[in-house]
Design a protein around this nucleic acid. Structure first.
Lengths: 349, 349
DNA sequence: ATGTTTAGCACAATCGTTTGTGCAATTAAT
DNA sequence: ATTAATTGCACAAACGATTGTGCTAAACAT
């Protein structure tokens, strides 16, 4: 069997024409290069029969374009990122691009390695939800004129385009809602510190307090990761405080699951014993033992916009003036917030 | 700026040696090809300074090996697949392989296109959770001696290696549990028909009945997709039946969410009004309004084993005798099953 | 018959690697 | 001093595609 994949060469040999001619015919350049109708048809026919399909390594090498984009996320098993991933992959495919995926596991080192891997594979551009603690490698990429778009997490004082939710506003509204329901001892279980979503959400949390002349109790701002364990551990600790916080603002869906676990272990009920609002709406949120009031993000749109932004950069070559795009969030009211009895603030709210 | 990426050539030029020598030095073949220590060090130093990193397109073209594997799944936003994806990506990375990801959206056409795309990109092997309705394209790949491993879904009469849960046994146990609790009118909301997980689960459902001399009511076997909508719609219809089924065996986590939605819309309660058991355990399963009794799959292990199986094939070249691996499932008891009053079977069970 | 166009294609370089082999120059052997 | 062995590296082909340019033969003009 000499049926190693058909190549331009094997077709050319078989038909007694040159590789050049085959290439041109198959790329629809017969007119421009005066390939006769007869030759063209003969080539197209042979290509179809042999099921010729160009070797994209060779093509990429020659063309310096691979129709591939690199995509790095911190945790694909987080449903928030999974749904964005779905949207990114779908949009990219629609425009003829494939995705190389890496999960950085919230590790900057893995992120750097993955990035290098992708550059070596000559991706046309990158979509990254960076861990967010270091930027030098991202800036370096951008300076090499490789298109890049940040997703979910960005760097405020950096000139890299990004797409994210308006986390500040979302958090502000979430905490406002708690305050309007009479809560004043509100815990905030935060995610990975010094990442933009976390910073913005915590800032929203604080500003909501300041706006209503409430003092901020820093001891109620706890936690350091977007994962479930963090939610569990910090809630366990919070529930030992005296006085108890009357409400929890949870900064991610996984944190919330951990928090719920801790709360139920302690024999407490949401919202009777403690109120809660959580970032990230999920399909299951409404079916939790207490349907969860959430801050929902437009994950599909985030993915689509990020992809579009990247492909614009790739296909127009010129590096646009980098845009930062914030998408509005939406509060989904359910049953996890109780009106608090000590309505000190009723007159104000 | 002449700083287009450093290449072997640019290093060679700079040092006044040949490309060959640079390549050999950087690949640790200095001894074998008698590159002097001095030359070697000089090359290594220059490579480090210039941050040389080989172009994997060129490398792949020459070596016919890309250290890339193609990965096709039907729905990355399904948390079951997302957690497998995490595990596959992580294992692959550990062995130095990158992942090209495609989401087929349960469409055989997209699956075929994606497959072709990946072949053109010269992946070293494929891990596929096929839609499962057609096999010709998969067989074709295998016949080209391209390593392939099926994941989650397989084809019983085909010689392709696969890794999946023991869906038959899992379903058998799940339905047994319902029967042992006195249920005899048990609805089965199935997923995509003619896929192996669905077939095996439905077969388990039926055999559980047959084993206990229960007749099978085909009108209680409904549905046709693993998605949430299917669960919702079919449950809506089931709840209009007379007499009502007393229990539901749901074949996937998304189906269950749809079913729960329908049940709660109809003002019914699990398990008071209707019992339920669901395939796929999820982090949230225990926190649902009624903590769900589930059939849990070892998704991490599935991903790891599939990756290992594939890498074995890739790296040993010889195509092993294809193995099919079934991983046991585990029932996680919670509160969604009520003991049924009409305990016709108590003596038997 | 000679010169000019045009049609129809092929040559060869190139992208960045890897690798079998060849060839000087040095060293060792006798 | 001559031959043989070894050291240290370079040449060139190959992987499979794309593309600027050049070449031949026919068609046309005069």
């Amino acid at each position: 069997m000499k049926n190693s994949n058909p190549t331009l060469k094997s077709i050319a040999l078989k038909l007694g024409v040159s590789v050049t001619t085959v290439s041109r015919a198959l790329n629809g350049k017969s007119n421009r290069y005066r390939i006769s109708k007869e030759t063209e048809l003969k080539i197209l026919k042979a290509a179809k029969e042999l099921a010729y399909s160009p070797n994209q390594l060779a093509r990429g090498l020659r063309l310096k374009r691979t129709n591939t984009i690199g995509y790095i996320i911190p945790d694909i098993s987080n449903p928030f990122f999974a749904s964005i991933a779905k949207s990114v992959e779908k949009s990219a495919r629609k425009f003829g691009y494939s995705i190389i995926l890496c999960d950085s596991e919230e590790s900057t080192d893995i992120e750097k390695e993955s990035l290098q891997l992708m550059l070596n594979r000559k991706v046309d551009g990158l979509i990254i939800s960076p861990v967010g603690l270091e930027v030098s490698h991202l800036v370096a990429v951008s300076q090499k004129n490789i298109p890049i778009v940040l997703l979910d997490r960005y760097f405020p004082n950096l000139n890299l385009p990004f797409v994210t939710s308006d986390n500040y506003q979302g958090a502000l509204e979430a905490v406002n809602l708690l305050i309007e329901n009479g809560h004043t001892r509100i815990a905030c279980i935060q995610g990975l510190k010094n990442t933009s979503p976390n910073n913005d959400r915590v800032r929203g949390y604080k500003d909501a307090h300041l706006n209503k002349q409430l003092t901020i109790d820093e001891s109620l701002i706890v936690g350091d990761s977007f994962g479930e364990d963090n939610g569990y551990i910090e809630t366990k600790l919070l529930l030992r405080k005296n006085p108890l916080p009357t409400a929890i603002f949870s900064v991610s869906n996984l944190i919330s699951l951990g928090a719920i676990r801790a709360i139920s272990e302690e024999g407490l009920k949401i919202p009777e014993d403690i109120s809660m609002i959580s970032f990230d709406d999920q399909p299951y949120s409404r079916f939790l033992s207490t349907p969860m009031t959430t801050v929902s993000q437009q994950s599909t749109q985030i993915g689509q916009i990020a992809t579009k932004l990247l492909l614009d950069q790739i296909e127009s070559k010129r590096s646009h003036d980098p845009q930062g795009i914030f998408l509005p969030t939406k509060i989904i009211l359910r049953d996890s917030i109780k009106r608090n009895i000590n309505l000190k603030l009723k007159s104000i709210g």
